[in-house]
Amino acid sequence: MRKSRADEFLEFASARTGHLFRSACLLTSGDTHLAEDLTQETLGRMYAMWGRMARIGNPAAYAQTVLVRTFLSHQRRRSATERPLGELPDRAPENGEDPALRIALLDALAGLAPKDRAVVVLRYWEDRSIEETADALHVSSAAVRTRSVRALAKLRQRLGGNIAEFATR
């Protein structure tokens, strides 16, 4: 018998949720409650599409795109409804990680416009090309370039020496 939609989906979701959640944490500059909400919303959208859309060539990548779009639409109507769902345990820094730098990065990300942050996450966390980023955000490549340059300048300014120090460790 063919696997049920729920089974197939669960297989996909179990494999991808961790990464989606982490992406969401970066997009929300560390707001894990919102990140949980966005992750669930993204999974919900993926489920609803599952099996009915013409084949999604790469569901994992598409889920990331859905996440970013969900995030951006949430930002646009931010004041509307925010309700945290459940708790994730607070985490302790893991080996080799610099808590100060982590906080500095999340702060610096928080200082970016949401769309700029989305560009940074797609390009440097997801390793998407400018075209792929543009496609995900429904904007032109030129717009991605502009945002990218602006965001990098801001991040560089805020993170400055910290980051070089980290990278050379």
């Binding site: 959640f21 982490r22 970066l26 894990t32 985490r91 820094p93 730098l101 990065l105 980290f166």
Partner: peptide, 14 residues
Amino acid sequence: VLRSTGEGFSTDGR
């Protein structure tokens, strides 16, 4: 740094 920070978020609640 993004990767290190992103991967630092626990996914225990997934």
